[in-house]
Nucleic acid binder design. Structure first.
Length: 169
DNA sequence: GGGACGATTGAA
DNA sequence: TCAATCGTCCCA
């Protein structure tokens, strides 16, 4: 069963670990689909979080983070990789979950390539989209937490907050 | 208008 | 350890 908008409209620190074990579905034309399990995520939480894009205020790139939970935030990194994020919380509380790993693809750049996710998914609504959504799986996996990756610039505190959630396999 | 850099990856 | 590769952001 598809997760509805209420699932996403909670604090990112609740939604991020809750996404572990859920099924990410990518539907293509002709009815072909790819179904994977989310195995690793990171939480980015509001304007105070110096690792979060929203810490620089509202910009053209991050504006969807200021929308309500359930929207897709996609952006290009290093000129060649699309990052897939799920917006959480309510309007004007910019939070998002970066999906870093799924079954069959470890790494945020690799999973978007596997699932053919690009800039055209920016602003897509996971509760209504006919080409991407997330489903309940019944799994309640245990997990470990670690500091987030690749944000050393965020300073001693924010670069070490254990907001990376990794499912135990 | 220009320059520095990034929530990465894969090869050397 | 390091190059690939380009949109975004910040300063002028």
């Amino acid at each position: 069963m598809r997760l509805d908008s209420h699932f996403y409209q909670r604090d990112v620190l609740d939604v991020a670990p809750a996404l572990l074990g859920k099924t990410l579905v990518r539907m293509f034309e002709k009815g072909n689909e790819i179904r994977v399990t989310i195995t690793e995520v990171e939480a980015y939480r509001g304007t105070d979080d110096l690792g979060c894009h929203a810490s620089k205020g509202l910009t053209q790139r991050n504006r969807v983070m200021f929308s309500h939970g359930g929207m897709v935030y996609v952006y290009l990194i290093y000129g060649m990789y699309w990052m897939f994020n799920v917006v959480t919380s309510v309007e004007n509380d910019p939070q998002a979950v970066l999906v870093r790993g799924v079954t069959g693809a470890n790494g945020p750049g690799k999973l978007t390539r596997l699932l053919a996710i690009d800039k055209t998914f920016y602003g897509e609504d996971l509760s209504t989209s006919n080409r991407i959504w997330i489903e309940e799986s019944g799994l309640k996996p245990s997990f470990v937490t670690k500091p987030r990756i690749g944000i050393d610039y965020a300073g001693h505190y924010w670069s070490k907050v254990p907001w990376r959630f990794i499912m135990n396999s």
